[in-house]
Design a protein around this nucleic acid. Structure first.
Lengths: 148, 148
DNA sequence: CGTCGGTTGTTGAAATGTGAACTGAATTGA
DNA sequence: TCAATTCAGTTCACATTTCAACAACCGACG
């Protein structure tokens, strides 16, 4: 089949996308570092904090933060040694493990959140025209939408 | 200072962004794997192929593909053992090293490019409304633009 | 000259990520 | 009931990435 190449404009946009994403991630990680967190760990804390009793099944959490089950196992282990989360057996399913946020984990999230939100603003939200930002949202929803 | 939180809409968009980016990267990496490449290596090949004599200074290349110098050293070493690139001393600056694409590297790029472009289309370009795609470009340019 | 500050690229160890087994538990269905 | 299958999470071996230290070189300036 003939390859359907990108035209010059599409290519320019695609490269901007790659550059932009990289730039955003750099900044977010850099500004989370003073708290001893990276974006992956931060997101875990966010999702736990939004859940009932600050607790989620590993596989559920893995899906929400888009980490492989294996990677989440490692990440949670590290966070456990830092005292940010604990593991508890799941009562209803003996295969299951719940990750539960500790008091210290919650406090760290509360402490880091304002700086993180500020990062997201500085790196993206405040830089972009509001209409374009809306469009960005629609675009990314289209990307995530299941079609296959 | 009072934290300037994101409103519900902004937060929704931000999370779509995180999800969308992750989804796109997954697909691109998955569809490059059959060629034995990941996105980082593919981009190296692209930038080399677009340069004079298929050759770039390491530090120049590092900047273009947004890899740290150290990371690029490792990546290029791996690609060298795969026979995709070579290192040659830079004549004008004895500190310098040029990465130069081999014939095999070029052939692999030519072979992988159609599938990769198709991935970019399937994962992003073809899914998004053209106006929104334009807006995405403007947004990402704004992100990359130097302001600091 | 000579030396000082900055740059280039590499190195090696430690941290992190990946993917394929693997264990034990739940579920299915004949 | 009970084998077969699927599922949850971990583990292992390995690949990749990061970080700090380093050696070699450049350029500018006294």
């Amino acid at each position: 089949m003939e390859p359907r190449w990108l035209n010059a404009e599409q290519q320019r946009i695609w490269r901007s996308f790659l550059n932009g994403v990289a730039r955003i991630n750099e900044r977010l990680d850099a500004e989370l570092r003073p708290f001893g967190l990276d974006l992956g760990e931060y997101e875990i804390l966010v999702h736990l904090s939004e859940s009932e009793r600050h607790m989620l099944r590993m596989s559920d959490l893995a899906e929400r933060v888009r980490q492989s089950r294996s990677r989440l196992t490692h990440t949670i282990s590290r966070m456990e040694t830092k005292g940010l989360v604990n593991r508890v057996a799941c009562p209803s399913d003996r295969r299951g493990v719940n990750a539960i946020m500790t008091e210290a984990g919650y406090r760290l999230l509360v402490e880091a959140a304002p700086a993180h939100v500020e990062s997201v603003r500085c790196a993206l939200v405040d830089r972009v025209d509001p209409d374009d930002f809306e469009a960005l949202g629609r675009a990314m929803e289209a990307v995530t939408r299941v079609t296959d």
